[in-house]
């Protein structure tokens, strides 16, 4: 039972990075990104390959952040003039594109079999491997939270919020909007990359089918639930989504009318329905447009 709780918390912490990243891009700056899983995946593969080659976890995390962040920057630089709806299509498509590359390039990433035997090289004396991992990941998440919170409340966050409200105004007062938008994408992607690296290290096994669009939708729901732009809200939203997704696995022992596949399907149906309800309530009649 405790082990189970630790596992849920670890998933919550990992998704926390990805959601904080999306909150910088979408919540703060207004850049919708339906392909956050792409940066998550790249971080995961990056850490898997480098730690297997003997790199310790922390440098691997930094490297994952750098690689994912650069990719995020590239996406931002290619899409500066796209409207919201097109950005949604392109980012979603991009994430599938990235997944297909991992699926096909056996020499790089093991193809459909993925990568097994990824080291989980951290233990704190006196704690078991899982708990030490949780402690370290949670400390890192606290740092990411501190960073996000300062970013949101510093003048730079004001500029990002201004871009979300009206990009034209920000250009008219002499600020390079493309630079700021790219920066937001880089930071958000880098955080997702760190999340991915932790994901790979925790599971010690990754494969392309783990990086479908669902992950992007989970964090989207988390940011939406916590109200876009709120750092604390994002983490709270992530906790709710993680409990809904991972916590309900506990029910498996009590519910016998449905089998494992059905229970998994029910969980995701519930999440889809919850996402729709949040949107309908948040944007429905009588609310802000």
């Amino acid at each position: 039972m405790t082990a189970y709780l630790v596992a849920i918390l670890i998933f919550a912490v990992i998704y926390g990075f990805v959601a904080l990243g999306l909150n910088i891009q979408w919540g703060l700056t207004g850049l919708i990104n339906l392909g956050q899983v792409a940066f998550f995946a790249v971080g995961a593969y990056c850490a898997a390959l480098t730690t297997q080659a003997g790199l310790p976890l922390l440098p691997a995390l930094v490297l994952a952040a750098l690689v994912s962040g650069s990719l995020g920057g590239a996406v931002a630089l290619f899409t500066p003039r796209l409207r919201e709806d097109y950005l949604a299509i392109v980012t979603l498509g991009f994430s599938e594109f990235v997944r297909l590359i991992f699926l096909n390039e056996k020499w790089l990433a093991g193809g459909p079999d993925g990568i097994a035997g990824i080291p989980r090289p951290v233990t704190i004396p006196g704690l078991d491997s899982e708990t030490s991992f949780l402690v370290i990941a949670a400390v890192l998440l606290a740092v990411a939270f501190w960073f996000s919170q300062r970013l949101a409340h510093f003048p730079i966050g004001r500029t990002l919020r201004a871009i979300r409200e009206d990009e034209t105004v920000v250009a008219s007062i002499g600020k390079p909007t493309l630079t700021y938008k790219t920066l937001a994408f880089v930071l958000g992607a880098a955080l997702a990359g760190i999340g991915g690296a932790l994901f790979a290290s925790y599971l010690t096994y990754i494969s392309p089918d783990m990086f479908g669009p669902n992950v992007s939708i989970y964090v989207l729901a988390a940011v939406l639930l916590g109200r876009q732009g709120s750092t604390l809200g994002t983490l709270a939203g992530t906790a709710v989504v993680a409990v809904l997704l991972e916590g309900t696995r506990l029910l498996k022992d009590y519910i016998t009318v449905v089998d494992g596949v059905q229970l998994a399907a029910l969980r995701l149906m519930a999440l889809g329905l919850a996402l729709m309800i949040i949107v309908a309530v948040r944007y429905g009649p009588g609310r802000r447009a």
Binding site: I32, L34, R83, E84, D85, A88, P213, N214, I217, L220, A221, L224, V258, V261, Q262, A264, A265, L266, R267, L268, M269, L271, G272, L273, A274, L275, M276, V279, A280, R282, Y283, G284, R287, A289
Partner: peptide
């Protein structure tokens, strides 16, 4: 309410229908 809300709804619906079929 603009473009974004129906896009988000369609994502939720995507998850719901895909897993409804799976269920």
């Amino acid at each position: 309410a603009g473009t974004l809300p129906p896009v988000l709804l369609s994502l939720g619906l995507m998850l719901f229908l895909q897993n409804g079929v799976r269920f």
